[in-house]
């Protein structure tokens, strides 16, 4: 029983493969050896019949394709495939090639990379703003930060790009993830850990803001320099920090020290006042 079943499967598979060969071979012969069109169509129809009969062993087993049904069904399938192939080859294909050529003529590679980084940034920020799970928000923030670092590279700002990756991705994001894990809300319902208050109001506010700022960015007559430079700036930045901006530099170091001490003082565990009394 099992062996005859297997043999039937193998026969179906062989017929399916033969049908595929017939279909492809007839197409190739028609293309390269000038096989007459009627003969090609006949061979392809026969190949289609073989393919369908072979496939019937695996799919649509409730409808046993035998006799007239098989030939009518494969005729219909052949017609549909022929129509689809005709449409793809004669209409969609040339249109695709044509529009792709026009697209490449218009867009340069650097522009494409800029749009990729901008899309990554904005999608990451949107994920942070709208995700229901705060862990997903944090990971979207990673994409936003990396995208912004890419934009810095585009603007010829090498040192801020590296600082962005080191401080935001390596420092602040890890800090945020630790804060999420230390505040226990993960194990509870993730839908509630990051609930929104008034998303329609916030969305309207955001839409108005981005509309106004974009209008201003496009319409304002910025005094753009003729040839922006893409030279490395790290040395110039170091000189600027130690000459023109020496006082802010020192103040910021004091601020960092104060923030460090303050964070430790605020975040440490409360020491119970009763614990230092002698028992």
């Amino acid at each position: 029983m099992a062996s005859s079943n297997l043999r039937a499967y193998l026969v179906r598979l062989a017929v399916l493969l033969a049908g595929l060969f017939l279909l492809a071979g007839a197409g190739l012969l028609h293309r390269f050896a000038q096989l007459p069109t009627a003969l090609t169509l006949l061979a392809q129809y026969l190949g289609m019949v073989g393919i369908l009969w072979g496939l019937n062993a695996f799919f649509f087993r409730r409808v046993p394709l035998t006799g007239v049904v098989l030939f009518v069904f494969s005729g219909a399938a052949f017609g549909v495939l022929f129509f689809l192939g005709f449409v793809l080859q004669e209409i969609v294909g040339p249109w695709l090639i044509d529009s792709a050529g026009r697209f490449i003529g218009l867009v340069r590679l650097t522009d494409l990379i800029f749009y990729a980084f901008a899309l990554m940034t904005v999608l990451g920020a949107a994920g942070c703003a709208f995700s229901g799970n705060i862990i997903y928000s944090a990971w979207s923030l990673l994409f936003a930060f990396m995208g912004v670092a890419g934009l810095y590279v585009f603007l010829g700002a090498d040192f801020p790009a590296v600082a962005q990756v080191l401080i935001y991705v390596g420092g602040i994001l890890v800090l945020i993830l630790f804060a999420i894990m230390l505040t226990k809300q993960i194990g509870e319902d993730p839908k509630l850990t990051n609930a929104h208050l008034a998303l329609p109001v916030g969305g309207a506010l955001g839409a108005v803001t981005v509309g106004t700022l974009s209008y201003m960015a496009v319409m304002a007559p910025w005094k753009v320099v003729a040839a922006p430079s893409y030279q490395p700036v790290s040395a110039a930045l170091g000189v600027a920090f130690l000459t023109d901006y020496l006082l802010p530099f020192e103040v910021v170091s004091v601020v960092l020290l104060a923030a460090l001490v303050g964070a430790v003082v605020i975040a440490r565990k409360e020491i119970k006042e009763t614990s230092d009394q002698p028992i």
């Binding site: 800029f114 901008a118 920020a125 949107a126 942070c128 703003a129 506010l205 955001g206 700022l213 960015a217």
Partner: peptide
Amino acid sequence: PHFLIVGAALFALGMITVVTRRNAV
């Protein structure tokens, strides 16, 4: 303007996050 628009979108999304979130983090 391209960069300013990206900055505007980032600012608006950050403001939406600040205004609508209930989670302090």
